[in-house]
Design a protein around this nucleic acid. Sequence first.
DNA 1: CGAAACGTTGATATCCTTCAACATGAGTGG
DNA 2: CCACTCATGTTGAAGGATATCAACGTTTCG
Lengths: 242, 242
Amino acid sequence: MRVTCHECALRACGLFKSVTAEELNSINAIKRDHLSAPAGAEIVRVGDDSPELYTLYSGWAFRFKTLPDGRRQILNFLLPGDLLGLQAAMFDAALHGIEALTEVQLCVLPRRQIWALFGQMPGLAFDVTWLGAREEGFVDENLTSVGRRSAVERVAALIVALYKRAEVLGLVADATFAFPLTQQHIADALGLSLVHTNKTLARLRRMGMFTRANGSLTLTNPRVLERIAQHFDDELPRRPLI
Amino acid sequence: MRVTCHECALRACGLFKSVTAEELNSINAIKRDHLSAPAGAEIVRVGDDSPELYTLYSGWAFRFKTLPDGRRQILNFLLPGDLLGLQAAMFDAALHGIEALTEVQLCVLPRRQIWALFGQMPGLAFDVTWLGAREEGFVDENLTSVGRRSAVERVAALIVALYKRAEVLGLVADATFAFPLTQQHIADALGLSLVHTNKTLARLRRMGMFTRANGSLTLTNPRVLERIAQHFDDELPRRPLI
DNA sequence: CGAAACGTTGATATCCTTCAACATGAGTGG
DNA sequence: CCACTCATGTTGAAGGATATCAACGTTTCG
């Protein structure tokens, strides 16, 4: 039972720009496989030297780096519609790992053919570049959290950001969405220790910001949570003029 | 005195893939301007809604975000050959600022025409995507520093990284290169306070890792500095080295 | 010369880490 | 059904890395 690009659920969300039928056929022609991996699977291993390009069709994953002594930094989280392995495909070697958070389904796009398609389908080239820029934006956002926000602000910002991304994908109902991260994942994404992450989460929970039940998270006070997160989307930021 | 793309100093460094004469003409045709800005100039302002795409021809710059209360995070540093404003051009609005660190010279590429060129020159599309992925790699690296490395490790990692980038561009002579960052820039890039950044720099200087003189930085012990950058080894002196 | 930007240093405060212990739930085999 | 283990989550206490505060030094430049 092969899923073709024509019936791709992701297109239905309006994630991609509209494409012509011809373009869709081209993509579908090179799509090599539609495979799935269990939670915890290593999708891209650091140092991988013949990486393919993937589209995350369903499930969650994350990109990460590991220091020689084992300290791990999660760079960002990947949700349906995201491109996996763009850097790896560009550099012929992966500089970071990618691991599945949940069971995932992936579309495999042989990268050599992708570059070839750039010539025939400028729109595709644009989309790939766009997705890359968008991902960099997420990393920027997370770097700002880790570098300049307090622990509470970081946790709040992460939850709000993931909530918003899930919302766009139609994964939110009743302010509730599936939240597959363990506290260790949150700690590694935010540059915090596990213990402090736990205490910070407990604090926000006691403040009535959210609740968790069987793998789902519910925002019980989105407005305040967003304010705690210190989001800059609201107003144009300025430096103090002393 | 208009500099054309044919005589571009950057091409000489082998930064770009080789292009055909025809492709070069196309690029040169749309290159709109070659302008310069003084140190401290805001090249891209947050919220800018008609941003152009730039190539940094000479000088240094940096991308940054600012929180509502003025805390600033520097996302990465930009050296000659880097693309400026890719995110902004993609999203029709800048989510971060870009400021000149030194006097800079910029090539202005009207973004609408760039997308149009994607169709005629798939190689250009590839280069743009490649530069985007490379920049994301830098942000990844910095996020790992800020999230999981100690202050000494972070400073060492930053200096080593900038040194290596300068080296590729031929800006290093005798282990020395122009280093236009103030301690405030370093602090904002590494998520540290100004005071602690100062003390950490002093410590590395006392350890004989580098020296500074009139705007230049010299690595006096690259091997050890690099080892510190990866992971601050416990066998190395940790105590204050008065 | 004076002002402003940048750098330096010590003292004190605090946020976060580390250590340690225990709780809870899922899976597994006896 | 129980005992066991392993992953995950929770909580208190103590220590440390970094922040903040305050003062002064140094350079640059009009």
